[in-house]
Design a protein around this nucleic acid. Structure first.
Length: 845
RNA sequence: GCCCGGGUGGUGAAACUGGUAGACACAAGGGACUUAAAAUCCCUCGCCGGAUAACUCCGGCAUGCAGGUUCGACCCCUGCCCCGGGCACCA
């Protein structure tokens, strides 16, 4: 059983998200180990990335040094939490032994045409002369310089993930162990859409040309009143040459960030190009506009504008006074060009559409596609939202791309026997460009082909490359001759993958892609990397701030904030401990350095120990749900463990230790024991049943509550009238304690292991880890009488006890005769009686 | 803006396949023990109203809001509000 938690970025110290993630993994690991599996739980470091460069700039320390020191700190923290990790397999992606295989596979993909070069758009800081990550663009400005960010086109390498789009989508159906929501998100991301590509002919300088657009609504073609192209489109560039105003507009579109979220929220703006194209069916002249809402990266970078039935086109047409022509009738719903209504975009029947009038969506699309095809002006086409994966980064702290640029031979791949291309570890970036490019000893080399002086590529690989296959390398981290070996066949696929929901799309999709590439190269025998997936919820905390006179926000850690409540416990405000003056709340958000709302788990571990920290994090919330941090409750987790210890060491031990050391006459017939003992065992086995079920479905918060119930039952004791068999009492307590220790072990392994030995259970099974999982005794759950809920018209009216064996008719009679039912049915006709066996009887009047 | 989730007491949450809403805890209040405090133990604890000397008993409302389906809805459907995640260079 391969149980894998997402490896951490070595950012400095563990945060609560890590504690939550790795505790879930460790609970699952230990549970499966007890169920008899050979379990692998490895750990490594996603060690390349931007924060190391930022830290380097701030402190003047090379990223490598900062990274390795963080790894040492965090490893110590992980060990102090008692995770059953196989540290012999530890790996860091920034070591040449690891990243050389990134380079190796990059070259294999280059050979197969799965890696190619084209231009891509990046954020450019004109002051620092450097490429910025999206994160480094704040309100359209560079984070260090405050300069307005520009878009810039540069050559980059891409991985052809679109070649696998069909399989990546189809195979989602095979992932039964994945949450539906993740599969839905990925399916939407891949975004397969069936449509028609349509060509609008035009003439340019006497030359016949075609403007291609893609649409999923070819049925609305007769309503097209304009076309719009992206600012980066060739047509826009051409028109701008002779039109300074348009050129200025195209330039304006090129400012700002490249983020889709920003683009989608821009006010719709456009400008006519002065060019006209011909409608492929009607022959009408249609004007071409440049629109800031047209994405160059999707479809053809051009759209036909159908304001009658597309909301964005409608808004655009209203703004610029373009004609709106309704051509779809949606079951007679009213249409007015005054304001957009949601049903304008619905499917319906064609109207005002000439020969297509009366056609429904599918018939219209089929007919129009056929007519276009006959004129050679379009045909049906499948388009994907998924884009190829740009992997070039103009950064230092990453895997060097193994390419050499030679004046004579062009871009030359580094031969396998010259791998790895080693990254120098002593550079310190200064925020102006890539330090690799300023390091002659790295850049200057010989062309592998002709041997003449050449320049090394200075871009590095996206860090998502590193994390796309580390789980395969864990099977054979010491293999120096090849990327992976036959041990990967033994361990892959990962049986259970655990990590944050924020990785639902990118990391998980890239990993699926890489696995398929490696499969096709004969390196792994699996189609999918992760059989089951648990996406843990984010750990959130409240954000507090004050706004200074200059408008700068200062964030305060919730630890330093005191909340004010009224008598009823309602929040009235918040003040800072240090000065007692109020701070503002900015709502809740994921724990982050920038918002200063993180909680350091180290304090928790030091004050309460690993078991309490683990228990609390598991108990606070179900794994898949977001966890809003609160200090209250930690105390309760600690109290529970202390109670368990004191019970075992004190009152409980008399019976337990005695029984275990002296032996006893096994009770064969529990059913003949006193009712008190039977009730005790019933409750114990009910709690065990709940815990076992909840372990299976990974709902660990209720596993913990089952353990609390077990201790409550044990503390309730077993003395009393009618209980005469000391032997049976001892045995019931011993059984119950044995169940509790084993059920609690995966969550709190330290205290349970110690008690297991102290109480003498070790005589039965040496190590708690090797003890068999307890089995529910079904006969202990049986009852002679059951309690049933009585309802009248679905409203609770009372309870009654009935023999287990009672039949339907007998139950109906008993129910009708019951006081509570009679009171609410008197004088009314009974229409029917619903009997849910073992649960309730509902009398309908 | 688009895609995906979530919303239940003062708080974290539970409710397994549509069948007793609030398990298990936290906080709070009351009490026991103690010179005192801490720790520990016991009791109360969704909201509103009524009956009773009292133990208790009865009724109504309640799972973000407004509707719908059903004998019966936290659970299924429609619309809305709020919160979180993702949007391709944070990881």
């Amino acid at each position: 059983f391969y149980c894998l938690s997402m490896f951490p970025y070595p950012s400095g110290k563990l945060h609560m998200g890590h504690v939550r993630n790795y505790t879930i993994g460790d609970v699952m690991t230990r549970f499966h180990r007890m169920r008899g599996y050979n379990v692998l739980q490895p750990m490594g470091w996603d060690a390349f990335g931007l924060p190391a460069e930022n830290a380097a700039m701030a402190n003047g320390v090379p990223p490598a040094k900062w990274t390795y020191s963080n790894i040492a700190t965090m490893k110590k923290q992980l060990q102090s939490l008692g995770f059953a990790i196989d540290w012999e397999r530890e790996l860091a992606t920034c070591s040449p032994e690891y990243y050389r295989w990134n380079q190796w596979l990059f070259l294999r993909m280059l050979e197969k045409g799965l890696v190619y070069k084209k231009t891509g758009t990046v954020n450019w800081d004109p002051v620092d002369q450097t490429v910025l990550a999206n994160e480094q663009v704040i309100d359209g400005r560079g984070w260090r310089t405050g300069a307005l960010v520009e878009k810039r086109e540069i050559p980059m390498y891409y991985m052809r993930i679109t070649a696998y789009a069909e399989e990546l989508l189809a195979a989602l159906d095979t992932l039964n162990g994945w949450p539906e929501r993740v599969k839905t998100m990925q399916a939407h991301w891949i975004g397969k859409s069936h449509g028609v590509n349509i060509s609008f002919p035009y003439e340019l300088a006497g030359e016949k040309k075609l403007l291609r657009v893609f649409t999923t609504r070819a049925d609305t073609l007769m309503g097209a009143t304009f076309c719009a192209v992206a600012a980066e489109h060739a047509l826009a560039a051409h028109a701008a040459k002779s039109n300074p105003k348009l050129a200025a507009f195209v330039e304006e579109c090129k400012r700002g960030s490249v983020m889709e979220a920003d683009l989608a929220q821009l006010d719709k703006k456009g400008m006519p190009t002065g060019l006209f194209v011909t409608h492929p069916i009607t022959g009408e002249k249609i004007e071409v506009w440049v629109g800031n809402y047209v994405l160059m990266a999707y479809g053809e970078g051009a759209v036909m504008g159908v304001p009658g039935h597309d909301e964005r086109d409608f808004a655009f047409a209203k703004k610029y006074g373009l004609p709106i022509k309704p051509v779809i009738d949606v079951g007679g719903k009213p249409y007015s060009t005054d304001a957009w209504q949601p049903w304008y975009a619905d499917y319906g029947r064609c109207v005002n559409s000439g020969e297509y009038d009366g056609f429904d969506y599918q018939r219209a699309v089929d007919a129009i596609a056929a007519d276009l095809k006959a004129k050679d002006l379009g045909e049906k086409q499948v388009t994907w939202r998924l884009r190829d994966w740009g992997i070039s980064r103009q950064r230092y702290w990453g895997t060097p791309i193994p390419i050499v640029h030679c004046a004579a031979c062009g871009d030359v791949p580094v031969p396998d026997n010259q791998l790895p291309v080693v990254l120098p570890e002593d550079l310190v970036p200064d925020g102006t460009g890539n330090p690799l490019a300023k390091t002659p000893s790295f850049v200057n080399c010989k062309c592998p082909k002709c041997g003449k002086p050449a320049k090394r590529e200075t871009d590095t690989l996206d860090t998502f490359v590193d994390s796309s296959w580390y789980y395969i390398r864990f099977a054979c981290p010491d293999q120096s001759k090849s990327m992976v070996d036959e041990r990967a066949t033994y361990w892959m696929a990962v049986d259970q993958y655990i990590g944050g929901i924020e990785h639902a799309i990118l990391h998980l999709l890239y990993s699926r892609f890489w696995t398929k590439v490696m499969r096709d190269l004969g390196l792994v025998p699996v189609d999918e990397p992760f059989t089951r997936l648990l996406t843990q919820g984010m750990v959130l905390n409240e954000i507090f701030y004050r706004k200074g006179g200059d408008g700068r926000m200062t964030y305060y850690n919730p630890v330093d904030v005191e909340l004010k409540h009224d008598d009823k416990g309602q929040r009235t405000g918040a003040v800072l401990h240090s000065d007692g003056k109020p701070v503002e709340s900015d709502g809740i958000g994921t724990m982050s350095k920038s918002k200063n709302n993180g909680v350091d788990p180290q304090d928790l571990i030091e004050k309460y120990g690993a078991d309490t920290a683990r228990l609390f994090v598991m108990f606070a919330s179900p794994p898949e749900q977001t966890l809003e941090w609160s200090d209250a409750g930690v105390e309760g987790a600690s109290r529970f463990l202390r109670r368990l210890w004191l019970f075992a060491a004190g009152r409980g031990s008399d019976a337990t230790v005695h029984v275990l050391s002296a032996g006893f006459i096994p009770v064969k017939e529990w059913s003949s024991q006193a009712p008190l003992i039977r009730e005790f065992r019933r409750n114990i086995h009910l709690a065990l049943k709940q815990a076992s079920y909840d372990y299976e479905r990974m709902q660990y918060n209720t596993v913990v509550s089952a353990c609390m119930k077990l201790l409550n039952i044990l503390e309730g004791g077993l003395g009393g009238p009618g209980v005469v068999s000391v032997n049976a009492v001892s045995q019931a307590i011993s059984e119950a304690m044995g169940i509790l220790l084993r059920v609690l072990y995966p969550v709190a392994p330290h205290i349970t292991s110690a008690l297991w030995n102290e109480l003498g259970y070790a005589a039965q099974s040496k190590d708690l880890l090797d003890a068999p999982w307890p089995i529910v005794d079904k006969s202990a759950l049986e009852q002679d009488e059951i309690e049933l809920v009585l309802q009248v018209n679905g409203k609770l009216r009372g309870h009654m006890r009935a023999p287990k064996s009672a039949g339907r008719e007998q139950l109906e009679q008993l129910a009708l005769a019951h006081d509570a039912v009679a009171r609410h049915t008197v004088g009314q006709a009974v229409k029917k009686i619903i009997v849910v066996p073992g649960r309730l009887i509902n009398v309908v009047v």
